[in-house]
Structure formats: C-alpha cells, structure tokens
Design a binder for these strands. Structure first.
Lengths: 221, 221
DNA sequence: GTCTATAAGCTGATAGAC
DNA sequence: GTCTATCAGCTTATAGAC
C-alpha cells in the first residue's frame, strides 16, 4: 500500500507520475466544480479537461466527493498562503494597502480558485464549516484585534474591524467571482496588469480614506 | 389554449390556482437553483420544496431550463425595481447613501435571490448575457455618466465611476452571497434589523468618505 | 498504473388514470 | 388541473483486461 501524500510533498526528487496526475486532475476538477458546483459537476467532464479516461480519475480519487474535498483543501492552502501578516506595530496605511493589493492580485491571478470558494460558500459552506471555524475565525479575530489596537493607539479612525475586513474581501474578490459581469459591462474580454493596478489603486485609496488614512504611495506628495 | 401570462398579471381579480402554484414553484426553484446551480438542481427537490408532486411541476414548466429561465426573469424584475434613480442634480452624498442603503436592504431581505444571481454570474452568466448587455450595461453607463458629472461639477472627488458602482455592489451583496461565512465568523446565526443598520451605516460612511463626502445623517453634526 | 466495458442507480420528462 | 407509474438516457463507480 502506498503511503498517502499530497502532490508536491516529495523532497527535491523529480515529481512522480502520481504527483503529476494528481495535480492535473485537481486543476481540471477546480474549473469544473467552480463552474457547476459539487452536484452539477460531471466526472466525465473533469476527465476530459484533464485529458485522461474517466476510470483513471477514479483510480486517483475514489468518489466525486473525495475529489471535491481535495480540491477545496488545495484552495484553502493557497488561500492561507496569502493571508497577510498584520501586526499591532505596523503602520495601518501600509499594512492595509499591502493587504488590499495582495487580495486583488489573488483575484486576478487565481480567479477560478476564488470562484470555487465563493460557490461553496453561496451554497451554505457545507464542506467548509470546519475550516471556517478552526482556521478562518481565529484568523479574523486576530486581525480584528490588531485593527482595534490601531484605533486605540489613535493611528486610524474608529471603524468596525470585522466590517472593514469583510469590505476588503468582498470588494477585491468581486473581480474574480463576478468576472463575467465586470468583463461584459466594461467590454473587457481579458483583465490585464494595467487593470489590476487601477483596481488596486482605487480600492486602496477608497478604503484607506474611509479609515482616515492616505495610501503610502501618495503620502509623500 | 391558455394565454401565457406571469403570475401577478391579473388585474384585481383573486389569484387563480395557476398563479398561486406558479409563484410557489418559482419560490421553491429559486432556493434550489441558488443552492445547486442549474445542473446541480433536482426537479424532485424543487417539487418537494413546493409541496407538489414532480409531475405537477412539469405541468407548469415543461423543462428544467425553462423553469430556470423563469426564475432568473423573476429575479431580474425585482433587481430592476430597486435600481435607484440617480440624477445629475442630486446631492451625491444623499443619492449614494440612498443607493447603498437600498442595496443593503435588498441583500438582507432577498438573500436567496441575490445568491442565485451570484451563482449564475460565477458560472459565467450563460443565461444572463442578454440581460447584462441590453439592460444592465446601459444602466451602468447612465449612472457612471451621472457620477462623472458630479465630479465635473466639483461636488465630489474624482474617482472611477464604474469601479465605484462595482464597490457598492460587491460590498453590499457580500452580506447575502456570503451569509454563511459572515454568520459563522460573527457567530450570528440570524441577521437582524440592527445589523442591517450598522452595516448600512458602516458602508455608507466608508464609501462616501472615499468620495470626499459625509453621509447626510452626520452632515448636521 | 492505464484504459475499456459495464453494472447499478438516479433523473428529466411523459403518459395516462382520475 | 392533479398525481402516479414508468420510460429512456445519463452518471457514478467498479471490474477486469492489458
């Protein structure tokens, strides 16, 4: 029996066929699940996207649900990676600006992952409640405490820290989750680096202004 | 052959059985589609939610897709109803404040409709592209022109009007679309009137500040 | 480890009694 | 207009040859 491991867990060795196919299937499944949800996704469609016969997909992932869980797990990992560190002694303008820009970058670079996450939460987060409880809630509480300490220190205006973080999440994720709408309304079939810049600048300026702050780039003018 | 009409089109007469069942099925289907998307939704589940046998649902809506389209149509109608009028000679602070509060109210009062709309767009808006083109795009263009005229008149700071409207949409819809996440993170199983107030106040204050404006309620302090 | 064929069960849609 | 029974096709998952 093979020891269970995630792809990428190998230590410096070349990626095995197993790891490679694992990754290919996860990527294919992410798109399919993002586009149709757990129940609406078709194993055949995932196999087609992966360029593999359906039986092969079942060889790596016994059931559709176990594949879905692996995909969510993979996304949560990447999500956590970009969870920026924010500390009490940071400058709020710099820290928030950095946080906003990281989130926008994630939306522009990983829109499919963002959409799958959104899809799962829209459907009531039945497979993510453990993660939300055990990881995201402590994370939010920590960051809210930091924001509150900035307020107490007089470094920024008094705003509800939770609502502030929800505002940053929602406004940045919008460009991934509602890409179809934004792209159609702006007649921009593809988002480019320039748009990512202008969105980042806009959101950073708007949100920081709401906190009585000025974005770091503009601070020296 | 019965003349086709939507439920509610009757003029003062009592609602027929047909109208009543139409409405019941639409409501049941809205929840089911919001939770699972077009492909993932089950006609049996819709019938169960409606408290009707499956055959009856097919009597009113020949196919699953036609039911889905009716549901979307119904939502678009309600969406358009709350599309606030914003005019060049309005006071921007008042108009934006009103717009934001209306959007928050819609999110809190019709979260399921908001989620179905979001779900459709996340999946690429395949059934909404006509609506986005023919109705939403002209609407956005109009409002953007109004915002631009406010800027030209010196009534508010210069910001990108499209991004401003996207910010209002995303930040307000978040409380409907991501209700499961917000509710879990805040340990609030149910959103109440007080929360709707505080969210409205927060978002109005933040977004208006970004435009160099003060919410009307605070203007007299 | 790969791939095809097939089993077992589910789902949309319809037919037809009431 | 209502509801049950049922069909045809699709979908997940497995068995088994290679």
């Amino acid at each position: 029996m093979q020891i269970a491991h995630k792809p990428g867990d190998f230590n410096g060795a070349e990626p095995s066929i197993r790891d490679r196919n694992f990754a290919i299937i996860i990527a294919a499944a992410t798109s399919e699940f993002a586009g149709h949800g757990l129940k609406g996704a078709r194993m055949q469609a995932i196999a087609d996207r992966a360029g593999l016969p359906k039986g092969n997909v079942h060889y790596y992932f016994k059931t559709k649900e176990s594949l879905y869980l692996s995909v969510l797990d993979n996304i949560v990992d990447r999500w956590n990676d970009q969870f920026d560190d924010i500390n009490e002694d940071d400058d709020p303008a710099e820290a928030l600006d950095r946080f906003i820009r990281n989130k926008v970058r994630f939306s522009f670079e990983e829109p499919v992952a963002s959409r799958l996450f959104a899809s799962e939460i829209i459907q009531g987060a039945p497979h993510l409640s453990r993660y939300l409880h055990s990881q995201m809630r402590p994370w939010l509480k920590d960051r809210a405490t930091v924001v509150q300490s900035w307020i107490t220190q007089g470094k920024m205006q008094s705003v509800d820290p939770n609502y502030l973080i929800f505002l940053i999440w929602s406004s940045t994720q919008h460009y991934a989750d509602f890409e179809a709408q934004v792209s159609l309304l702006l007649s921009k079939p593809k988002f480019d680096e320039a748009m990512m810049q202008s969105v980042s600048d806009f959101l950073s300026r708007m949100i920081l202004a709401g906190c009585g702050l000025t974005p770091p780039q503009l601070a020296n003018n």
